[in-house]
Amino acid sequence: MTPSLDDLRVDARSGVGPPSVLQNGSVTTLRQTWILARNDLRQELRELELLITSVFFTVVILALYAVSFAEMSKSAQPKAVPGMLWIALAFVGALTLTRVFEREREADTFGALLAAPVNRVAMYGAKFSVTLAVLCVCAAVLVPGLLLVFPSSGVEGWSALEMLATVLLGCAGFAAVGTLFAAGLAHGGGKNVLLSVVLYPLTTPVLMMSLVATQRVLQAHPGAWDILAKIAAVDVILLIVGGALFESVLVGGAARGSGGGDSSTGAGGARAPRTGEVGPDMLGDDVR
């Protein structure tokens, strides 16, 4: 009637076993992350839609700043400009995150990826990297633009390298939180408005730290690297938690570990079946 399981194994899974290094989970995850990120970049290069909209939005904000704060005194600039930078990046970030996942939602390609043998952490990592890349491009427009419009915001001799690190680390923290929630909202058909509701309260701490770091960098303050290291630590925490929760938020209970089955935690596995008789008395003394 049916072929034996051994036959099947050969038939269905023809080919030789993979090189042992590929079975290493983290290498696989990294490779898949790269493949997914490359896929996003390839699409982006076709139309540049994401980049054009995000950069244009950035320029608009910059122009608004220039118009609104043209009269700003020189002494106020060092305090105000870092704030402008991070507020702009927070807005552009929300826009970018929405768009990055909108693209997956349009043809439900997100579903195809979830059904494919792709590590969820790789999906998280890829979207995170793409968002971070777009944000960095926007920052590359914003930072010189702001310094041009508000020339007194920094002292002579601030370090561009430190600035780069600040922008990178700050945006990374923002994207680490944002990717998780944007993915959740995109996959669950949630309303995009909620992204801003979620994102800003949660990312304010990291943005505040980045703001302080930016101030210090622009003032050539010696404590800049100190705070940058702390932002990096926070980024790592946010990334780990974001990656760990990604599967649970998107598809439900995460299947941890390999092999065997802890039936209480498996995806598509089981919680205890709901038993309980139907009837008012089943509500017991919980009803007041």
């Binding site: 959740g184 669950g188 058909g189 949630g190 309303k191 909620l194 946010l238 938690v241 938020v249 439900g252």
Partner: peptide
């Protein structure tokens, strides 16, 4: 207002 996945999204929010 989170839609069908509201519970899980909100939970992630609480964790963060």
């Amino acid at each position: 207002f989170g839609g069908p996945m509201a519970g899980r999204l909100a939970a992630a929010l609480a964790v963060f």
